[in-house]
Simulated scan of single mutants.
Amino acid sequence: MGLISLIFTWPVAPVRAVIRLGELIQEQAERELRDPAVVRRRLEELAEARRSGLISEEEESQAVEQLLQTMTGTRRG
């Protein structure tokens, strides 16, 4: 049965490989989004932009909220 299943599944092997590659890329991207070092660096960048006057307090607050929602995977409203 192994040879027969190999013959019939062989043509779709490239498709399955591309799907698996996509899954691996998605997993890596999600890990990076939730990496505490990346989140901390982004929060520091927001604080520096606020101190420099590049963004307002409201913009900083919105960006922090969005960052935290992305990190935790939750959405409000």
Results as ranks from 00 to 15, higher is better:
Met1Thr: 11
Met1Phe: 08
Met1Tyr: 09
Met1Asp: 07
Met1Gln: 09
Met1Val: 12
Met1Arg: 10
Gly2Arg: 04
Leu6Pro: 00
Leu6Ile: 02
Ile7Met: 10
Ile7Pro: 01
Ile7Ala: 10
Thr9Leu: 08
Trp10Tyr: 13
Trp10Ile: 05
Val12Ala: 04
Val12Thr: 08
Ala13Tyr: 08
Ala13Glu: 04
Ala13Leu: 12
Pro14Asp: 02
Pro14Gln: 01
Arg16Lys: 10
Ala17Gly: 05
Ala17Lys: 05
Val18Gly: 00
Val18Lys: 06
Val18Asn: 07
Ile19Cys: 00
Ile19Gly: 00
Leu21Ser: 13
Leu21Val: 06
Leu21Cys: 12
Gly22Asn: 06
Gly22Val: 02
Glu23Gly: 04
Leu24Trp: 07
Leu24Met: 08
Ile25Arg: 15
Ile25Glu: 13
Gln26Ser: 09
Gln26Lys: 13
Gln26Tyr: 09
Glu27Met: 11
Glu27Arg: 13
Gln28Asp: 11
Ala29Asn: 09
Ala29Ile: 14
Ala29Lys: 15
Glu30Thr: 15
Glu30Cys: 10
Arg31Phe: 11
Glu32Trp: 03
Glu32Met: 12
Glu32Gln: 11
Glu32Tyr: 12
Leu33Pro: 05
Leu33Gln: 15
Leu33Ser: 10
Leu33Thr: 06
Arg34Phe: 07
Pro36Arg: 10
Ala37Arg: 15
Ala37Pro: 04
Val38Asn: 08
Val39Pro: 02
Val39Asp: 00
Arg41Ala: 11
Arg42Glu: 05
Arg42Lys: 11
Arg42Gly: 01
Leu43His: 04
Glu45Val: 06
Glu45Lys: 04
Glu45Met: 10
Leu46Cys: 02
Leu46Gln: 02
Ala47Pro: 01
Glu48Lys: 07
Arg50Cys: 01
Arg51His: 05
Ser52Ile: 00
Gly53Arg: 01
Gly53Leu: 00
Gly53Asn: 01
Gly53Asp: 01
Leu54Met: 07
Ile55Asp: 01
Ser56Met: 01
Ser56Gln: 05
Ser56Val: 02
Ser56Gly: 10
Glu57Val: 07
Glu57Met: 06
Glu58Thr: 07
Glu58Val: 05
Glu59Ser: 04
Glu59Tyr: 02
Glu59Asp: 08
Glu60Ile: 00
Ser61Gln: 07
Gln62Ser: 12
Gln62Ile: 04
Val64Thr: 06
Glu65Trp: 12
Gln66Ala: 12
Leu67Met: 06
Leu68Glu: 15
Leu68Gln: 15
Gln69Lys: 14
Gln69Ala: 15
Gln69His: 14
Thr72Ala: 10
Gly73Gln: 09
Thr74Trp: 14
Thr74Tyr: 14
Arg76Ser: 13
Arg76Thr: 14
Arg76Lys: 14
Gly77Glu: 11
